[in-house]
Simulated assay, not measured.
Amino acid sequence: MHIELSGRTAIVTGSTAGIGLATARGLAAAGATVVVNGRTREAVDRALQEIMAAVPAAKVYGVAADLGQAEGCETLLAAQPACDILVNNVGIFGPQDFFDIPDSEWTRFFDVNVMSGVRLSRAYLPGMARQQWGRVVFLSSESALNIPADMIHYGMTKTALLSVSRGLAKRMSGTGVTVNAVLPGPTLSEGVAAMLKADAEAAGQTIAQAGTAFVKAHRPSSILQRLATVDEVANLIVYACSPQASATTGAALRVDGGVVDTIA
């Protein structure tokens, strides 16, 4: 299967590292013009350099904006008023006991993980509908279904994204615009690698070995029995953005390594 996205413009939020960067690189390799986003100009420029090194013919540029705030979304919209593909990837995570999470953290997680995608989808989808073609992907998580006891506030936001994406797909019925959610499982992003670093050093392991130990200890239902790579997750996102995925909408697409122990 050859995915061709020449002539399409894609925005990938939170794309200076991890799954977002891998997705931006994959879309650029498929020929799309890609808008990279991060909170700082330094991070954005570094990501642009990485993409250009991997895809020398890439058409990419960056917008520095904090999408956890309405003003940041307005900055992105001013820089890029329209797009064909929107990947709502930006998100934050981190373990914290429920009884220690203040209201401000619940609000922060919701603003970054949910409202960024809501605001941008509200802004960009009408243009997609007018041209009768568009792709929107929300990055949910297996934690939307397997709510982590140590990250309840995170799990809540990822479940919310399933509701938003499914409802929005219905709202866009018949327009040629598809809306889907992708649910990664444990993935070896830079953030996860940093979280595993201390355990790996203490056990005399590589980060990959520590990741496998983490999966077996904390996600024992995993069929894959290891962390996924960011490129493995990005491959599914790029497909969901492609012309070939035209009949896939309103779906929760799992790339969770089989962690979620259901057949539907």
Rank of each mutant, 00 (worst) to 15 (best):
E74R: 15
R122Y: 09
Q132C: 10
A43L: 12
R135F: 12
S121H: 05
A54D: 08
E142V: 06
L145A: 13
M115R: 12
G68R: 00
I19D: 03
R39V: 13
G26K: 09
A64G: 04
V35T: 11
P56Q: 08
I92K: 11
G31K: 02
F109Q: 14
G62D: 06
L67V: 03
P81V: 05
T16S: 10
N113R: 02
T13Y: 04
G91L: 06
S15A: 03
G20W: 00
A144P: 06
C73L: 05
W106H: 09
R135L: 10
P81S: 07
L21P: 01
L48E: 00
V118N: 01
E42Q: 15
G38P: 09
P81Y: 08
D100Y: 12
M52G: 13
A65G: 04
A54Q: 07
N113Y: 01
G127A: 13
A78G: 14
W133I: 08
A144T: 05
L76C: 09
G31V: 04
T40Y: 11
P102H: 12
S143F: 09
T40N: 10
A53T: 14
Q49W: 06
R119S: 00
D45I: 01
R135P: 08
A29R: 15
V36K: 01
G62N: 08
A54T: 03
V60F: 00
C73H: 05
L139F: 02
I51M: 03
K59Q: 15
A24F: 01
P126F: 06
T40F: 09
S141V: 06
Q132T: 12
D97S: 14
F109N: 13
V87A: 02
L48F: 04
A129Q: 14
G94Q: 12
I85A: 06
Y61V: 00
I92P: 09
T33V: 08
I19C: 05
P102T: 13
A79V: 07
L76E: 08
I101R: 12
P126H: 08
Y61K: 14
V60Y: 00
R108Y: 13
G38C: 08
A64Q: 03
Y61C: 11
R46V: 14
C83N: 03
L145F: 10
S104N: 14
F138R: 01
G38R: 09
G134H: 03
A30F: 05
N89R: 06
L145E: 14
P126Y: 04
D66N: 12
R122D: 02
G91P: 05
I101D: 12
L48Q: 00
G38V: 07
T107P: 08
D111Q: 14
D66G: 05
L120T: 04
M52D: 10
V36N: 01
G72R: 03
I92E: 09
E142I: 05
T40I: 09
A65I: 02
A144N: 06
